[in-house]
Amino acid sequence: MTLLALDALTVRRGECPVVDAASLRLRAGECVGLIGPNGAGKTSLLRGALGLLPFEGTSSLAQLRPKDRAAQAAWLPQKREIAWPMTVERVVALGRLPYLARGASLSATDQASVNAALTRMGLDSFRSRIATHLSGGEQARVLIARTLAQETPLLIADEPIAGLDPAAQIATLEVFQSLAKDGRTVFTSLHDLSLAARYCSRIIVIHAGRIAGDGPPEDVLTSDMLARVFRLNANIVHTRHGLLIEPLGVLP
Rank of each mutant, 00 (worst) to 15 (best):
A5T: 13
C16N: 11
C16D: 12
A22M: 07
A22D: 10
L26G: 02
E30P: 02
G33Q: 02
P37I: 02
N38A: 08
G39M: 04
A40T: 14
L46R: 03
L46H: 10
R47D: 10
T58D: 14
Q63S: 10
L64Q: 06
R65I: 09
A71M: 13
Q72C: 14
A73E: 14
R80Y: 01
R80W: 08
M86Q: 03
V91S: 02
V92D: 02
P98D: 03
S105K: 09
A108I: 05
D110N: 08
Q111P: 13
L118C: 03
D124H: 00
F126L: 01
T132L: 00
G137A: 09
G137D: 04
Q150K: 09
Q150T: 10
E159C: 01
A162H: 15
L164R: 12
I170P: 15
T172S: 06
S178G: 04
D182P: 02
R184D: 13
R184Q: 14
V186T: 07
L190V: 04
L195E: 15
L195N: 10
A196Y: 07
Y199H: 11
C200R: 00
C200P: 10
R202W: 03
I203S: 02
A208P: 06
P217Q: 06
D219R: 01
S223E: 12
V229N: 05
R231K: 15
N233M: 12
N235L: 13
I236F: 06
V237E: 14
T239H: 13
L244Q: 09
P247N: 04
